[in-house]
Design a binder for these strands. Structure first.
Lengths: 249, 249
DNA sequence: GCCTGCCCCTGATATAGATCAATCAGGCTG
DNA sequence: CAGCCTGATTGATCTATATCAGGGGCAGGC
């Protein structure tokens, strides 16, 4: 608990992560916000940077759970597969989000980069050892897991009981809320994922997602914005579609 | 962190819980298994017993999250509602399971007793204070939450991508596995919940659940067992249905 | 500038499961 | 022990969404 890093160890940080954690742009969003400068220095000794190209896999369902990650830049999709290829995307991760919480020593899902990705990697064994010394980090990890659980429960409600229109509207609102958390504007939304990814997240087909977006556009609730963006024209109207629910971030 | 309980405080334990935690029949199943006798004594000072009749609500979505619970006896359903009354059951809890992990100070879902219920109640404030002294309890809580998260992700796959037959088969197998964990037989299954609850859990209607069970019965995979029970006649055949082998009908 | 391939969108048709509508089977009441 | 009442089952029909089938547009390669 007293061993400080004497100097910056070479950790192979990805470009853009060369600086110290103190300068990290997503620090307040991430688990690191739970730590003091001193504790952060301790944590930093086990971190390595990690860059992943779009379409490449970060972790694989069924593979050994050796590492945990913090998303620094880019977007990730998490998914599970059935043997015949049916896919369920269980979540999307953005900068500040935590990746890799595993129950056993096996990852329960796969994670794939959607956009060029920069990650902080924590070897699982070393992180677990550190948790004993950094109770605030453990508390934060519990909070992070509870948060994901709450999001998962919202998603169960969506998948089990909402109509296609309600699902798409919920999704757009959720993206918007998460953008605000990252200090991005609520409205011209960046949509980094494909229609297929959206469909696999919402339990629909790409065709239905596409048709539903067209409906929302015709109803003047949304409008295309640039190549991959969507502007929300009427947030209240959109919210009304999700049946006045409390859909989470 | 040295204050031991000088004597047994009167805690209003429900009938059957009058004894000490040491004699608790679900101790090894629950979070309490993470604790030594001494630590357990510490924990016990904040516990009160709680009895709930079937159909009564334990916690309510949107209400203040004042307590956490351990299920000692009985079955609980967790659910979320849409304003128009559509319901999604997000899980069922059995003896040994933990209830009430909340992100904020507000419960994100409701919990209702299905069978006569006995609970250990932990006031949230007091439990949080204790966590500082009992790091093993906190670790166990993290594990419990991660476990629920994994279950939620499985359920997303079920709700988003599985057919009715796969859903019902998955559900029966899951019930069977959980029975085994509680040292009950894998096969004559107790089904304490109604068809409506099953349907709301599986994202189906009662009619579809009923028809699907009839199909499984006709296929000699299951058979009725007593009033509310189901015997699994062919576990392998049932398992084959779960992951989408379209070989049988 | 012109292919080529990948998304995305749109239209026509099919279908799994929802909805509507009776029974039916127990168990509880009086 | 007859009459309800509630929950489960079964049957007939409907519909939201899947599936099948093109077609269009932008990006990237040559």
């Amino acid at each position: 608990m007293t061993v400080l890093t004497p100097a910056l160890p070479k950790t192979g940080l990805a470009p853009g992560l060369q600086g110290r954690c103190a300068a990290c742009e997503i620090r307040e969003l991430s688990v690191c916000s739970a730590l003091s400068e001193t504790e952060l220095a301790r944590l930093r000794t086990i971190i390595t940077g990690y860059h992943v190209e779009p379409g490449r896999t970060v972790i694989e369902e069924g593979g050994p759970a050796t590492d945990l990650f913090n998303v620094v830049r880019g977007t990730v999709k998490l998914y599970k597969l059935l043997p015949d290829g049916r896919r369920q995307v269980t979540g999307f991760l953005f900068p500040g989000d935590f990746l890799g919480i595993a129950l056993n020593d096996i990852y329960a899902y796969s994670a794939e980069a959607i956009e060029p990705l920069e990650l902080c990697r924590f070897p699982r064994k070393k992180l677990e050892a550190l948790l004993v010394e950094l109770p605030r980090l453990e508390r934060r990890l519990l909070g992070e897991t509870a948060h994901e659980l709450a999001a998962a429960q919202d998603q169960m409600l969506l998948l089990g009981r909402k109509t296609a229109k309600e699902r798409v509207a919920s999704f757009l609102i959720s993206l918007s809320r998460r953008a605000v958390k990252r200090r991005r504007p609520a409205s011209p939304l960046d949509i980094p994922m494909s229609r297929t990814d959206m469909a696999d997240f919402l339990g629909l087909t790409t065709e239905t997602v596409s048709r539903t977006l067209t409906q929302l556009r015709n109803a003047k609730l949304i409008a295309p914005h640039g190549r991959k963006g969507i502007a929300i024209l009427d947030m209240d109207g959109l919210s009304a579609l999700v049946d006045g629910d409390s859909s989470a971030d």
